[in-house]
């Protein structure tokens, strides 16, 4: 029974994906259907049109196997062997450098704001500056 419920919930979420795609097509939005579907599902939950239990199990299944769905497109790299060829080390360098840059900026900004917010209301607890 639990299996059937989960399956139906996955089907419902998939319908939302089709709806998202249709909206993106119809309104010629530059957004992927999945993002529109995400916002739709979120709004449906917040506005209490649907209950969390109606989608929770199916959503958890999909999230648990999230990495599986990446694999087929990753295998597609075989078709671009010639294009990547001798440039693979440059690509790796760009990705590694840029990833480090992004991490540093994101982490330091977040930490700076989190600390400031903590310092403001609790002035007595911290004796800095």
């Amino acid at each position: 029974m639990k299996f059937v419920t989960g399956l139906l919930q996955v089907a419902a979420i998939t319908l939302l994906f089709l709806l998202g795609n249709a909206i993106a097509n119809y309104a010629s939005l530059p957004l992927p259907g999945s993002m529109i579907g995400l916002v739709l599902l979120f709004l449906l939950l917040v506005l209490r049109v649907i209950k969390l239990e109606w989608v929770e199990q199916g959503a958890n299944w999909l999230l648990a196997e999230f990495l599986l769905f990446f694999i087929p497109s990753a295998v597609g790299v075989v078709d671009y062997k010639d294009m990547i060829g001798g440039q693979w080390w440059k690509l790796l360098a760009v990705i590694a450098l840029s990833t480090i840059t992004v991490m540093a900026f994101t982490g330091l900004t977040a930490q700076w704001i989190a600390k400031r917010r903590k310092d403001v209301p609790g002035e007595s607890s911290s004796h800095s500056s």
Binding site: T14, V39, L40, L41, L63, E65, F69
Partner: peptide, 24 residues
Amino acid sequence: YYKGAKWLGYMLGPATIAFAVPLY
């Protein structure tokens, strides 16, 4: 290979939508 496997890739769309649940 991709003729069949693309259906697994297709599920990336619904899986992205599923993120609405933890977000909520």
